[in-house]
């Protein structure tokens, strides 16, 4: 009796482990099919689990598995997605290791929790390099050296502000709107005081860190894999992020052109 109880607990732990792995991947911007695949692989790798299925959308994970004629189901809700591609890679490696070894589930859960804590780069470094990307982008668009400098400083300010207001847990729409507003407002000012030379290039460069590149890529990859619900919702995210940026820029330009 004790033995079968233990085994049952092990199956439950396996379910928890697989959903935790899926949650970390989904939270950091993995495609739907990769999350589903990882969860199913982890579940099916152990003991006598014949049936395991996962249904993943960008906002939640449902997993059920059959153990000894009993169905177990687990559901978790996923909120605020942040992009950290390194964690996706780490969980991917972990799942491969877990499936091909006899790692106990407790150890696996501990390892996953550790992965969840890893910070690949410090937030400061991310902001510095993110604004570097925008600044070089303005050069690609034919900006001068002064445009490069002002784009660098403006996107630095935009990224720092977005990082700060992230704590208030506002929606991505508000974040993008505020970011685009600040970017265009500061660009107007920097050209007014004669520091930047081409206002349009500076604005285009500084909004580049806000554009929904991840949402576009994932929306399409989901749709091709047949995950139409995820594809649609991520496509919606991309469209509304773009609209928020456009509204932010338009808001400032409207005032600038009138006044």
């Amino acid at each position: 009796m004790d033995k079968s109880d233990n085994k049952r607990k092990e199956a439950k732990n396996l379910l928890l482990l697989s959903t935790l792995a899926g949650k970390i991947m989904l939270k950091n911007g993995a495609e739907t099919y990769r999350v589903e695949d990882t969860i199913e692989r982890i579940c099916k790798s152990r003991m006598n689990i014949k049936y395991a299925d996962a249904f993943v959308t960008p906002t939640g994970i449902f997993v059920s598995l059959e153990y000894d004629g009993e169905m177990m189901t687990y559901l978790i809700r996923v909120k605020n997605i942040k992009i950290d591609l390194n964690k996706i890679d780490l969980v991917n490696q972990f799942s491969r290791e877990f499936v091909n070894s006899n790692m106990p589930t407790d150890e696996g859960i501990a390892k996953l929790k550790e992965i969840n804590k890893i910070k690949n780069y410090s937030p400061r470094l991310k902001i510095l390099f993110g604004s570097m990307a925008c600044a070089f982008f303005s050069l690609l668009f034919g900006g001068t050296f002064l445009d490069f400098l002002s784009t660098y400083m403006i996107s630095l300010i935009v990224l720092i502000t977005i990082n700060k207001i992230d704590r208030f847990k506002m929606t991505f729409f508000v974040n993008n709107f505020i970011g685009a507003t600040i970017a265009s407002f500061l660009s107007v000012i920097s050209t007014k005081i004669g520091f930047g030379q081409n206002m349009d290039i500076i604005i285009i460069g500084s909004i580049m860190s806000l554009v929904p590149g991840v949402a576009i890529t994932n929306a399409l990859r989901d749709t091709i894999s047949g995950d139409f619900i995820s594809g649609l919702s991520r496509g919606m995210e991309a469209i509304f992020s773009a609209l928020a940026i456009a509204f932010g820029v338009g808001f400032v330009l409207n005032i600038y052109l009138r006044g």
């Binding site: 911007g29 992009i83 950290d84 591609l85 390194n86 964690k87 890679d89 780490l90 690949n120 780069y121 470094l125 991310k126 390099f129 993110g130 604004s131 570097m132 990307a133 925008c134 070089f136 982008f137 690609l140 860190s209 590149g213 991840v214």
Partner: peptide, 12 residues
């Protein structure tokens, strides 16, 4: 520029 975006998205 791509390297900058790569670090912003925290790739390995």
């Amino acid at each position: 520029s791509t390297i900058g975006f790569a670090i912003l998205f925290s790739i390995p």
